[in-house]
Design a protein around this nucleic acid. Structure first.
Lengths: 198, 198
DNA sequence: CAGAACTAGACGATCAGTCAACTATTTTAC
DNA sequence: GTAAAATAGTTGACTGATCGTCTAGTTCTG
């Protein structure tokens, strides 16, 4: 069946990194190929377009990240603790990225979303899908907290959306100011929004 | 002193619109020129680069928007009401843009910030400057509310940052889902964060 | 050796940016 | 008052780099 190759995976890894450290628009196919050590011809053998590689890459990254989230949001963990741990995980992740790239990179889904959602339909749909899944983690944790009495609300979904919007906004600020310390207030902010005691 | 021209203003207007409806990366100099009815040679007569036009445009837009904000955040208005009115103003603005462009466009400062902050230093500095000014409106309103007793907090600045991050996150979601109704919960969300009674 | 997996490099289009020639308007000089 | 000079704006052809894409051909594997 012909030869085998790791080129596809290398392209995906390169794409994720370049989008995260830069932007979709600032990332050229040549650049992706160079970083992946793949010739341009091979690129279009594996992917039909730059958009398709982006969709595949984002999907791939999300699948990986979900494994982590499934552990963080395990029903075994107290519900409020799940959300706080998620935020701590964000902070840790950004710290690792900072060490690696010398920059706070924020959330690639949102940076990409802000950039392409009016321009690239296919990419936007994928990002919507992922964010729609992400918020369910918050939602179910809040519902559990509600049942348990640690959070008082009449609309768990609405509260989840607030927490979600807040976390994105904060990650974006950390990226814009290249400042990890902006993420330190994640926890206190979440507690204020969720109305839990310190 | 030679002839006069409105070309510069037309370029600024075109740039703002194109960035808002698309992105910085998806906006080409040719496109800007075409929309402004200006030849490329004239473009570089007025601006030394695409980045410089972006900086000038963003600055111009912010100067305009500030006039509105100064009214919304007038000390004459009850402090909590200022913030809620600001959010109502966001919602109204997005509604107008939707009628005009058929899309929810969100906040151009943040969309741009997410896109270029790791790539274009000059642009990033300008965006930082503007956001740094914006948050002062929230901060001073919250401080006034605190003095007046309608908001209880020990750190007005921190609370302002939460409100700010939340509003940005929500605007981004409205853009990504092209859904105005996402902005309906602005008010209730703000009340939850600020801890004011309904 | 059949056929799938992969590569090389050329494609036309478009990118940001340059430039010298040209036109229109105001200022200055007399 | 008017002509010359200085200023400001306009034009379109041009650069070299890079864009995303594609086709024809090579290399490897079953």
């Amino acid at each position: 069946m012909g030869r085998t190759s790791t080129a596809k995976d290398r392209l995906i890894a390169a794409m994720i990194e370049l989008i995260w450290t830069g932007s979709y628009g600032s990332t050229s196919v040549d650049q992706i190929c160079e970083r992946a050590g793949v010739k341009k011809g091979s690129f279009y053998h594996f992917f039909e377009s730059k958009t398709e590689l982006a969709v595949t890459s984002i999907d791939h990254g999300w699948t990986e990240h979900r494994k982590e989230l499934d552990q963080i949001f395990s029903p075994v963990v107290p519900p409020v603790e799940r959300i706080l741990n998620c935020f701590r995980n964000f902070r840790q992740e950004q710290e690792d990225l900072f060490k690696k790239h010398g920059r706070v990179l924020g959330c690639p889904i949102h940076s990409l979303g802000a950039e392409v959602s009016t321009v690239d339909e296919r990419l936007r749909d994928k990002l919507q899908e992922i964010l729609g899944q992400f918020i369910r983690y918050y939602e179910s944790a809040i519902r559990d907290a509600q049942a348990q009495g640690s959070i008082v609300t009449h609309d768990a979904m609405a509260l989840a959306r607030i927490v979600f919007a807040y976390s994105e906004g904060l990650l974006l600020h950390a990226r814009m100011w290249n400042d990890l310390s902006r993420l330190d207030e994640f926890e206190s902010g979440a507690k204020i929004i969720l109305g839990v005691k310190t």
